[in-house]
Design a protein around this nucleic acid. Structure first.
Lengths: 192, 192
DNA sequence: ACTTTCTTGTGAAGCTTTTCACAAGCGGCT
DNA sequence: AGCCGCTTGTGAAAAGCTTCACAAGAAAGT
């Protein structure tokens, strides 16, 4: 949001304006930001540039995150091609897949590697994140292998709850569940 | 989870077992379910079959949801090919795109239609959900057009907060934000 | 029939998050 | 300098959510 405001030439922004854009309340914006420090000026609001920079640091976007993509399917390629992905500091350093048909194929500069090499690739390339875009049946195994190799975080697209040790953050994206959330809300609204 | 338990031959399941699988607590599972009714048997747990069926009805999965896919890119194709998508009752009835190169192309039985026809397609095909897999700059316009045509819910992959009327549910999937959640947690853990 | 062993459903307690409301502070105008 | 119109940061109050703990009930064995 702050980058959009920058593009529109905005220099300062109030909690009220941020709240409207983000479908929340001004008090919520202020409380949340105050958790990390005191970034605003009374009577004026927040400096868009400063707040953006501070948030980038808080989110860890002031460094490059080497990412390995597991599963060279459509979800993987969607992410791989997505310009914001690289722009935000996520650098895809390897792609692996278990399908012999896909291994050896090239995506940009990268050659698709066999899944068996995942553990050594994570170590060699010092990858911090893996993106799991594999079938549900394979996900747990890949997760365990990644954790063994010292991965720091997992973005999981498989529709299973991964069992990983405490301290390894996992974010889940479950596309069918998102649709289910919609049909639930629509169904519920009709019943009242 | 219940379907996985069915496949493993499970007939009943306790809140404790569900909690372990879902990374939550038994009390939470019971409270949540009790919100919709009383499905379990004391001393025994929940009938896997019955609970699955009840949840399907609660989620609105006892009917078919006609879906229109807006944006025939990689995210769209990932969803289109995903077997669970159809298996859960979501039926892609049309695909539209604004790129003249793509219009006329076929995905399975469906021909990619021009974006201008979106409104009439929603009406004619009685589509209830749209999946927005378009660039951020186009998303708001597509959302408004869909709402005008009477859409009931929106699954939004564009990295913007859509402004839609109250009562139209929107679910957002923002892939870069998921990665940011990971880098935030990792950065934060290092600082403590 | 009685006891034992489970497990649900749910008030009440405890905890967390959100909202309220206002003093303190900044900038511009007279 | 003094006043006015805004907006932050934050304690306190309100609302919401999670956990606790236990009565009530179900099945299985004796």
């Amino acid at each position: 949001m702050l980058e959009l405001i920058q593009d529109d030439g905005g220099v300062t922004v109030s909690s009220e304006q941020l709240a409207r854009r983000g479908h929340t309340t001004a008090a919520q914006v202020r409380k949340d930001l105050s958790h990390f420090g005191s970034f605003g000026k009374r009577g004026l609001g927040y400096s868009v540039d400063e707040l953006r920079d501070r948030l980038r640091i808080i989110l860890g976007l002031d460094q490059v995150w080497p990412v390995i993509l597991v599963g060279a399917g459509r979800i993987g390629s969607a992410l791989f091609e997505y310009p914001d992905f690289k722009r935000r500091g996520y650098d895809c350093v390897a792609i692996v897949d278990s399908d012999p048909e896909k291994i050896g194929g090239k995506w940009g500069e990268l050659v698709i590697q066999p899944a068996a090499k995942l553990e050594s690739l994570i170590k060699e390339l010092r990858a911090t994140l893996v993106i799991l875009a594999v079938p549900a049946s394979a996900a747990q195994l890949v997760a365990e292998c990644s954790v063994n190799a010292g991965i720091k975080g997992i973005l999981n697209f498989a529709p299973v709850q991964l069992q990983v040790p405490d301290g390894i953050p996992v974010e889940n994206v479950n596309l069918v569940m998102e649709l289910e959330a919609l049909s639930f809300q629509i169904t519920r609204a009709l019943k009242t």
